[in-house]
């Protein structure tokens, strides 16, 4: 479960201060697959970075499975997996060495480490595990990032634009895996620009614009709220985020 209460975060000081996230409150339930949507610069990445501990909130609280991340961040981190927007990897390590490093720091028992091979096979990265990451393509790096986030079987999976760069097959397996995860009672929170993915995959979507959460509801409910029964998520998103309409 992810619980965000009155989250504020700004950048800069004095006159140059820009509020990236404004009074954001949200709850993502256990076993829920939540899509976080918004135009560029809406505050999605800032929110996600606060959730995983890369940024500190100016105000507000974040709970990961009832753990206050400002008080017990290590405990929260140990049950969270994170896929950043741009893969952050040690380039000179081979894929295998990188996964071993991640497994070591998350204390993954030896018996569970065969999941490295399973996940690598699922994402067709198996043949490249002995190559240094520096020779990987963008898509392969994204796969490494996804596998390393799933490696320790986290309770909460937080991802920033995870589908970008994945080939159709990997994208399919990834979405299947996310569904499987949620069925196991784990929580998935991810941002995306691909409306079709959010529409088909997510139990609930949240739409954020200029740092403010405009709505957070299942797709069908969003249609109801907006009074447009046949609208696609893309149409709803455009209407909600466009100031002129």
């Amino acid at each position: 479960m992810i619980k965000i209460e009155n989250l504020y975060r700004g950048y800069g000081t004095g006159d140059k201060k820009v509020t990236a996230v404004k009074d954001l409150s949200l709850e993502v339930k256990k076993g829920e697959l939540f899509g976080f949507l918004g135009p560029n610069g809406a505050g999605k990445t800032t929110t996600i970075k606060i959730l995983v501990g890369l940024l500190k909130a100016d105000n507000g609280k974040v709970y990961i499975n009832d753990i206050d991340i400002s008080k017990k961040s290590l405990k929260a981190k140990s049950i969270t997996g994170f896929v950043p927007e741009e893969p952050v990897l040690y380039e000179k390590m081979t894929g295998m060495k990188f996964f071993s490093f991640i497994a070591d720091v998350y204390n993954v028992p030896l018996s569970r480490r065969k999941s490295i091979i399973e996940l690598a096979e699922l994402f067709e990265l198996h043949d490249a595990l002995n190559d240094p990451i520096s020779v990987y393509s963008h898509g392969m790096r994204q796969k490494v990032s996804i596998i390393s986030a799933m490696l320790h079987d986290p309770e909460i999976l937080i991802m920033d634009e995870p589908i970008i760069g994945l080939d159709p097959k990997a994208s399919f397996h990834f979405k299947e895996k996310l569904r499987e995860y949620c069925k196991m009672g784990k929580t998935v929170f991810f941002s995306t620009h691909v409306m079709e993915v959010a529409e088909r995959l997510c139990d609930r979507v949240g739409i954020i614009n200029k740092g403010e959460l405009l709505a957070a509801a299942p797709f069908a409910k969003l249609r109801e709220i907006e009074g447009k029964k046949n609208a696609t998520l893309e149409q709803l998103f455009l209407e909600m985020t466009d100031e002129d309409t």
């Binding site: 060495k97 996964f99 071993s100 070591d104 065969k114 091979i117 198996h126 043949d127 595990l129 002995n130």
Partner: peptide, 10 residues
């Protein structure tokens, strides 16, 4: 290719 038993050293 990485074999299942290689690389799994804790």
């Amino acid at each position: 290719r990485v074999k299942e038993k290689t690389g799994f050293r804790k």
